[in-house]
């Protein structure tokens, strides 16, 4: 049976892993390759690396550290940050990334999703969406790595998920901004709504604080749960989390 995935997310800035609260005030939490290897050893199913300043700075995530990670670890990983062309994507995939995730550049140029899917296949094109509630629905935000430029992208989240899949995205990572970094549980209502219209794998992001939150979020039918601070700060150990989830009837890879 297909296992639910536990995915540590490593936000990268200037070659180091950092963690902020609600996308701001970043603290250094360690070396990229060392943390990646530690999480792989603990039983992480996949890793995601976001170069959080790449898009605001007009550059793309660096192939050099992608290779350093791929040399060392033998589980899949996805990279994100400033990828805005076929050539950008090719360089990252050839460096050893399994998937590329696009966020702000896809909002500026939605056809980028279609071009990447045609060239590399849907399965390695991930659409990352930063989303927050406004009134009765959720809206997409852009440039979330830069507090001075972040803001509304002018789209409703559920519409953007549907359009992204239609254009060839093979997976959706939904970063629920209202919950990010506060460890109060995933945004179950938003994820439930997203699941009902999302025909590709859906990854929940934002809000994990204790092991019960992972159990709750898998009840919404998401394929994977992404988390950062609870892993970086040692609040939850991945191996122990997966053992516990298995006792709760969640299909996990032990």
């Amino acid at each position: 049976m297909l296992a639910k995935r536990i995915i540590p997310c490593l936000d990268v800035r200037d070659g180091r892993v950092v963690k902020g609260v609600r996308f701001r005030d970043h603290q250094d939490v360690g070396d990229i390759v060392e943390l990646a290897a530690r999480y792989a050893q603990q039983g992480a199913d996949e890793l995601v690396f976001y170069d959080i300043t790449a898009s605001p700075e007009g550059r793309a995530v660096e192939p050099a550290w992608i290779s350093a990670i791929a040399e060392r670890i033998d589980i899949p990983f996805c990279v994100a940050g400033g990828i805005r062309s076929i050539d950008d994507a090719r360089a990252r995939l050839f460096a050893g990334a399994d998937k590329i995730s696009i966020n702000t550049p896809a909002l500026s140029d939605p056809n980028l999703i279609s071009r990447l899917a045609a060239e590399f296949g849907c399965q390695c094109v991930v659409l990352g969406i930063d989303s927050a509630r406004t009134g009765a629905c959720w809206h997409v935000h852009k440039f979330t790595g830069d507090p001075n430029r972040s803001g509304f992208a002018g789209r409703e989240t559920l519409d953007w998920i549907a359009e992204g899949i239609d254009r060839g995205a093979g997976e959706i990572v939904l970063n629920c901004m209202d919950q990010d970094g506060v460890r109060d549980g995933y945004d179950l209502e938003q994820l439930d709504a997203a699941r009902s219209i999302c025909s590709t794998p859906l990854i929940a992001s934002g809000g994990a604080g204790d092991r019960s939150h992972f159990h709750q979020v898998f009840q919404t039918g998401v394929d994977g749960a992404l988390a950062a601070s609870v892993f970086h700060k040692g609040v939850i150990e991945i191996g122990a989390l997966k053992q516990w989830l298995a006792t709760q009837g969640v299909e996990v890879r032990i």
Partner: peptide, 15 residues
């Protein structure tokens, strides 16, 4: 095939 239960594509660890 994709269905309400099985999303497309198949992605992740399986046995």
């Amino acid at each position: 095939k994709s269905s309400a239960k099985d999303v497309w594509p198949h992605m992740g660890w399986n046995t």
